[in-house]
Simulated scan of single mutants.
Amino acid sequence: MAPALLVAELDAGSRRGSALPREVLQDILAGARSVAEIDAMRVWERTGLPRPLWNAVLRDSDGGFIAIPDAWFGTGLAWEIDSCEFHFHRDDYARTLARNARYAAAGVPVLQTLPNRLRSDPDSVATELIAAHKAAESTPNPPVHAATKRAS
């Protein structure tokens, strides 16, 4: 069932016991695709930085695919939440390196964060995100186009 339909169903029913599902559905509608991305949204909220695009498709000036970062900031900064679970095995690691090579070739700075740090050390992650954003602001934006995909 699409998240928007679930929200409508919750709205039509009793509010009793629905706070957590409502909160999670709002995160999904905002672009989160995982618990780690919801945690990343919570860390971002601490920073005072402008709202990023969540899971935007990045393409270079020729239309070639670069990546789908967890968060994309208007300063040209990509933020990736990279877990060992999905990036540690040989093929997964190779895909992560290929993605990072595409970022580098396009001139996109990337901040990589382990998901467990979003909860265990959110203040340090927020500080790193602010510093990376500031560094990205001091350089020209890379020639990258971002397009959002709507949650269905």
Score class of each variant (00 low, 15 high):
residue 138 S to G: 13
residue 122 P to I: 10
residue 13 G to S: 08
residue 32 A to S: 15
residue 96 T to S: 13
residue 67 A to Q: 05
residue 118 L to G: 06
residue 33 R to Y: 01
residue 18 S to I: 00
residue 37 E to Q: 08
residue 150 R to Y: 03
residue 57 V to T: 13
residue 60 D to F: 11
residue 43 V to K: 10
residue 60 D to W: 07
residue 24 V to H: 10
residue 98 A to D: 11
residue 133 H to T: 00
residue 37 E to F: 10
residue 67 A to P: 01
residue 80 E to I: 02
residue 146 A to Q: 00
residue 131 A to W: 05
residue 135 A to P: 00
residue 96 T to H: 11
residue 71 A to Y: 06
residue 20 L to F: 14
residue 82 D to S: 10
residue 30 A to L: 13
residue 112 Q to L: 11
residue 122 P to M: 07
residue 17 G to R: 02
residue 73 F to M: 04
residue 89 H to E: 15
residue 38 I to Y: 04
residue 53 L to E: 11
residue 22 R to S: 12
residue 95 R to F: 06
residue 58 L to H: 12
residue 25 L to A: 03
residue 35 V to N: 06
residue 48 G to L: 11
residue 53 L to V: 02
residue 43 V to L: 11
residue 131 A to V: 01
residue 30 A to Y: 09
residue 43 V to W: 11
residue 119 R to W: 07
residue 14 S to H: 08
residue 82 D to E: 14
residue 88 F to Y: 09
residue 47 T to E: 02
residue 96 T to Q: 12
residue 26 Q to S: 14
residue 55 N to A: 03
residue 125 V to F: 09
residue 120 S to A: 15
residue 27 D to C: 11
residue 74 G to W: 10
residue 78 A to T: 00
residue 94 A to V: 03
residue 13 G to D: 01
residue 28 I to N: 02
residue 38 I to V: 15
residue 69 P to K: 07
residue 78 A to E: 07
residue 15 R to S: 14
residue 97 L to P: 00
residue 141 N to Y: 06
residue 112 Q to P: 00
residue 34 S to I: 10
residue 44 W to P: 02
residue 1 M to R: 09
residue 35 V to C: 06
residue 47 T to G: 08
residue 51 R to C: 00
residue 150 R to H: 13
residue 110 V to N: 11
residue 121 D to F: 03
residue 18 S to N: 07
residue 42 R to D: 08
residue 115 P to N: 08
residue 7 V to E: 04
residue 45 E to S: 15
residue 37 E to A: 10
residue 120 S to N: 13
residue 15 R to C: 06
residue 138 S to A: 15
residue 58 L to K: 07
residue 137 E to G: 12
residue 99 R to Y: 12
